[in-house]
Simulated scan of single mutants.
Amino acid sequence: MKTILKIAVLLFCVTSFAQEQKVDYKKVTNNLVKATYYFADNSDLIEREGYFDADGKLHGNWISYDLEGNKTSIANYTNGKKEGVWTYFKEDKVSLVTYKENKIIKVEEKALVIN
């Protein structure tokens, strides 16, 4: 009986906290599909968006946002591999991480000055 009760409580907790994330897919070309992911608790706000290639691998720019709609990161992929400069935005700084074939080549941090 205790086991059944534990399973029932566990299933209730999992279903209570599990939220369905809305995702929109739009074919852009024969080789690219744009994916837009929305925050699970607010299906109108975009969490991240980017592209998949014909093989289903991440490709091109991927942009992530916070709940206020501000960019938190800009990432670049080539056929599923991290490539080029990735930008991470924080309150007081911008971090730039350069990748080549999925490996970090360079990391820079710059102070964010707002007048």
Rank of each mutant, 00 (worst) to 15 (best):
T29C: 13
K81S: 06
N61K: 10
T98M: 09
N79Q: 10
V107F: 06
V113E: 13
A75F: 09
D55W: 13
E101P: 02
T98R: 07
G84E: 00
G56M: 00
D55E: 05
S95R: 15
F52Y: 03
K82A: 06
G69M: 07
E91W: 12
L32F: 10
K57N: 05
K110E: 11
S43Y: 04
D24A: 13
F17Y: 08
N31R: 11
L112Q: 08
V113I: 12
K6F: 15
N61G: 09
A35G: 11
T98H: 03
N102D: 08
D55S: 11
N102R: 04
G84I: 01
N70E: 10
E83K: 01
L45G: 02
K106D: 14
N31K: 13
E47P: 04
F12K: 07
A8N: 11
F39W: 06
T98S: 07
N61D: 06
E49P: 05
K27L: 14
A8H: 12
S16A: 08
Y38V: 01
K110F: 09
T15A: 13
L58P: 00
S95V: 12
I114E: 10
L96Q: 06
K90Y: 11
K110Y: 15
E47K: 01
A35S: 12
A18E: 02
W62L: 02
E47C: 08
E108G: 10
E20T: 05
K81P: 02
E109D: 09
I104A: 01
V28E: 14
A54D: 10
K93I: 11
D92H: 12
L96I: 07
I105G: 09
A18D: 01
A111M: 14
I63E: 01
V14L: 11
E49F: 06
I105A: 04
K57E: 07
N76D: 11
Y25C: 06
F89N: 05
S16T: 04
Y65F: 07
E47Q: 07
K100N: 04
V107H: 08
V94H: 02
A35E: 10
S64F: 08
L10C: 15
L10A: 14
N61Y: 14
T3P: 15
L67A: 09
L67N: 14
N31I: 11
L32T: 01
T72S: 09
I74W: 00
G50P: 00
V28D: 13
E20W: 10
I74H: 05
L11E: 06
Y38T: 01
V23I: 03
S16Y: 07
Q21K: 03
K100P: 07
E68P: 09
K34D: 07
A75W: 05
L58Q: 05
T29Y: 02
N30K: 14
L11H: 08
V97N: 01
E83I: 04
I7L: 13
I63R: 02
D24E: 14
Y25V: 05
N30T: 15
K6I: 15
S43I: 05
E68D: 09
E109P: 06
K2R: 15
A40G: 02
G56C: 04
M1Y: 15
V97M: 01
E109Q: 06
L10S: 11
L112V: 11
N79F: 04
K6Q: 15
D24W: 10
E47I: 00
K26D: 14
E91P: 03
Y65G: 00
T98W: 02
L5R: 15
V113A: 10
E109Y: 10
L32W: 12
T29N: 06
V23T: 05
A35W: 07
K103A: 12
E91G: 05
